[in-house]
Amino acid sequence: MAAVTEPNHVARTTWRYALLIAVAMIFVFPILFMVVSSLKPDAQLLRDTSSIAAFLPVGDISLDNYFGAFRRAPVGLFIFNSIFITLVTVLISLFLCSLAAFAFAYLEFRGKAVILSIIIATLIIPFETIAIPMLMVVNSLPFIGANGVQWGWLNTYHVQMVPFLADALTIFLFVQYFKDLPKELIEAARLDGASWFQVYRLVIVPIAGPVFATAAILKFLVMYNQYLWPLMVTQSEQVRPVMVGLQYFFQLNTAWGEVMAYLSMITIPVLAFYLVLQRAFIASIASTGIKG
């Protein structure tokens, strides 16, 4: 057995860090390019793309592109709309999908396997194939709001939320996680007289933090990046989300600096959400005591 000498250790550590830094750079560089470019005027931005200066805040640096972006489009409104739609959908979706998964994992009822199979089978249907039929359906649905009953859901927040409140992937994630939890916990709770909903709320939810965090992150990304559906159902600027808003910046002569400024601004909520849930994710594993 070869002895682990000090120079060997240093060399291996150096190599390891060099490799990790190289890999990290692959992920960091696009974000760095976006943020740095958002501070440069268009001419300089385009000129710098062919050199390392593209990643450095050098030259004529200012926040002009950010001011320009706010002048060009109601950026704050778009970000609010997206965050509102996304958060409401994620919260309701986590509740509904976890409840459905709970039933599939622990309750016995006729046709359970078939229904679950059908739900999972919907994963292979691309959204684009059902977009037009869905549009026609939501366009003829009633909605009871502040102004009484209204027909047609177009140009509303709820038309961007309701179709996505339950989805096969989220249900599948929860089912798989719930199936691996110790059955003894549920049996003990039931013996103590807990109702099924109490079992869900008081036993399962507290120990299912990781899957809630994972599902929330995935759902958040899907909802925040929605483009085709909002494009079809929002004809009013007041309810448009960020991805449709991005198109405001592509004109005959595209203002690339403003595009980068807008992208930088709409990326912040995604990063913030991920960082917050990343902590919750780690905390939930640490507190459950049932890992492994």
Partner: peptide, 21 residues
């Protein structure tokens, strides 16, 4: 007036035509 971004405009019109709006 209701404005649409150019890249999304044609799709919006087609969707509106489908839904009668």
């Amino acid at each position: 007036l209701e404005e649409f971004p150019q890249a999304a405009y044609n799709d919006s019109v087609v969707a509106a035509a489908v839904s009668g709006n």
